[in-house]
């Protein structure tokens, strides 16, 4: 065969393999287009329409959905007023999600380290135990926490019975309760990627750094954390993203007053009867999360390359 013919055959082979690739991924692409991009597009369109009287939307363009994200219209003179309540909800959502991420990391890192340093058999057992909470419905688990911490719940009853307090401690319907609930629910999502990263960590590096005069703290900060960083990034994303959109936990443990974005969006589609605002909030949440992720991953990579040259 001449070189040209060989080249042609090679190109044909490549075209065929590319065609096969598209064919093979077609079902997945179809499902994604139909069930992810499609609905998203609908939500985007809805955010620019006018709310119907009993919910839903009417097909008439209106920017009010987006304006409503930050402003509310005065009922008397129709002027726009900055909606403090909305900002409070946004701020609480971000704050609680960040704190949930930090708490799950603080609890999850030692746990993942413990599991990764067990013998293989015990390790499988511990990983299995970590996944057990996933077997029960989230709603039921959250109501169980509610049962434990509410005013006439187990903890308060025990404390009163023991004579340590006269009045029940107020734990339910606080930010703390939401935080505890979210940390509990999302902890496995932090532990599993951390475990995967620590499992790959070469423990001999610890001996090397210990041999080179590093204290235990320096071993952790200078050797372990930088090397397991991908696991930390993955775990933080897996916890932060669902935390920001959390719905069940703040509803059951935070009550009506300690709302997060998820509850606020739901409100617009139910009692609020303001689907465009709900749609606008959903899109906003999506965009904010995407931006935050991009910035976070960039910063994590940047930190690494700074460590390389600094």
């Amino acid at each position: 065969m001449t070189p040209a013919a060989t080249g042609q055959a090679e190109a044909a082979r490549r075209r065929a393999s590319a065609r096969n690739g598209w064919l093979l991924s077609a079902p997945a692409l179809l499902i994604l287009t139909l069930f992810a991009c499609g609905p998203l597009l609908i939500v985007l369109v809805y955010s620019f329409l006018t709310p119907g009287q009993y919910g839903n939307v009417v097909g008439e363009f209106s920017p009010d959905g987006w304006i409503g994200v930050l402003y509310s219209r005065d009922i008397f003179d129709d002027t726009l007023v900055l909606a403090d309540a909305h900002l409070t909800i946004f701020w609480r959502s971000v704050k609680l999600s960040l704190m949930t991420t930090l708490i799950t990391f603080a609890l999850g890192f030692p746990t993942a380290w413990f599991i990764a340093t067990r013998p293989p058999k015990a390790r499988a057992m511990w990983l299995f135990l970590i996944t057990i909470p996933f077997w029960t419905n989230l709603l039921i688990r959250t109501f169980a926490i509610n049962e434990v911490i509410r005013n006439d719940g187990i903890i308060n009853s025990l404390l009163i019975w023991a004579g340590l307090i006269d009045q029940p401690l107020r734990m339910i319907y606080t930010d703390g309760a939401v935080l505890a609930g979210m940390a509990y629910v999302y902890l496995p999502l932090m532990v599993l990627p951390l475990f995967a990263a620590i499992d790959r960590f070469d423990m001999r590096l610890l001996e090397a750094s210990y041999d080179l005069y590093a204290s235990r703290w320096a071993c952790l900060r200078r050797v372990i954390l930088p090397i397991v960083r991908p696991g930390i990034v993955a775990g933080s994303i897996l916890v932060f993203v669902p935390s920001l959109g959390a719905y069940v936990t703040p509803r059951v443990l935070g009550g009506g007053k300690n709302m997060m974005i998820g509850n606020f969006i739901e409100l617009q589609f139910t009692q609020g009867r303001n689907w465009p605002l709900g749609a606008a909030l959903s899109i906003l949440l999506l965009v904010v999360v995407a931006l935050a992720l991009i910035l976070y991953v960039r910063a994590a990579e940047g930190g690494e390359s700074e460590g390389r040259h600094g």
Partner: peptide, 10 residues
């Protein structure tokens, strides 16, 4: 060390 145990991130 026999495995060198060099720090891969540095």
């Amino acid at each position: 060390f026999q495995s060198y145990a060099l720090f891969p991130h540095l």
